[in-house]
């Protein structure tokens, strides 16, 4: 395990894409401290900002308020990062494997375009969670994101595969232009959820305001959802029993796009 403790709070954004198990694996603390980062517009070393201890395994512990530290775990393929504090933008963006747990809030673009692995955020997440960067054709494509708080706009935008579960509320345009995958929102959905949805599933547990380009199908018990919710439960997500056994209103859409997507709304009979 390698532990990084923030020595001083940066006053400008820090680009720290080197904070991944892939970069730390097999390195002594001095070597880890020598890894390059960008502080504002200046080159620096990880050791300038953090005190480093540990033994170079694939497990990293981060301590301190890292709200200005960006790209933590970006592109990682293995191992585990645990953050005790808030993190900046692009947490785990484009990650391919491994696990990130943040005991705090994460800024925008957490898990953006990730293709594998697991991100758990105990606080809130910003905009573009599991989404696609501007100009990209594809957002999250495999993997799992669990946010125990709320999330901002464009959650899972242009998502291709994977699962995003948000225990709180989400902002506008959740699942916009999704082509597959699943977004489960236990709180409230913002406006225009599923806009341009081609395929994929958005699950809501509070009646959302749906776009007129979604059509009501039926009330039923989707077997796959039971399986999915059980899988979340196994990861410690508190899922009510009635959500497993309950009925859901199915809406197909978005008929402005392909129309093979769906929004499932828990039917509170």
């Amino acid at each position: 395990m390698t532990t990084l403790t923030l020595k001083l709070q940066p006053s400008v954004p820090v680009e720290a894409g080197v904070i991944t198990p892939d970069h730390f694996l097999g390195k002594a603390p001095a070597e880890v401290a020598d890894l390059p980062i960008t502080v504002g517009n200046e080159q620096a070393r990880l050791g300038d900002l953090f005190s480093v201890t540990g033994n170079g395994t694939a497990e990293i512990i981060l301590e301190g308020d890292l709200a200005r530290v960006k790209h933590i775990g970006a592109g990682m393929t293995q191992g585990r990062i645990t953050v005790h504090g808030n993190v900046g933008m692009h947490l785990g963006a484009e990650m391919r494997g491994g696990e990130i747990v943040v005991h705090g809030n994460a800024d925008d673009w957490a898990g953006a375009e990730m293709t594998g692995g697991f991100i758990r955020i105990t606080g809130n997440a910003g905009h573009g969670l599991g989404g696609a960067y501007r100009g990209s054709r594809r957002g999250m494509n495999r993997g799992l994101i669990v946010v125990e708080g709320s999330a901002g706009n464009e959650v899972g935008a242009i998502m291709r595969r994977g699962l995003i579960a948000v225990l709180g509320d989400v902002g506008d345009f959740a699942g916009a232009f999704m082509t597959a995958g699943t977004i489960i929102v236990f709180g409230r959905l913002g406006a225009r959820a599923g806009a341009g949805l081609k395929r994929g599933t958005i699950v809501a547990f509070h009646p959302p305001e749906l776009l007129p380009t979604f059509r009501y199908d039926c009330v039923y018990q989707p077997s796959f959802l039971r399986l999915m919710l059980q899988s979340l439960r196994a990861r410690g997500v508190p899922v009510k029993e009635e959500y497993l056994t309950g009925y859901y209103r199915r809406y197909s859409g978005d008929f402005n796009a392909l129309g093979k997507g769906e929004i499932l709304v828990y039917d509170q009979r």
Partner: peptide
Amino acid sequence: GYQMSKVIDGRRFWRIPVMEGEFL
């Protein structure tokens, strides 16, 4: 053509629409 798939914990499942609802 109306079938849908879901990958859950690395296993792919097919959802086939049937008159009763859905066969998984």
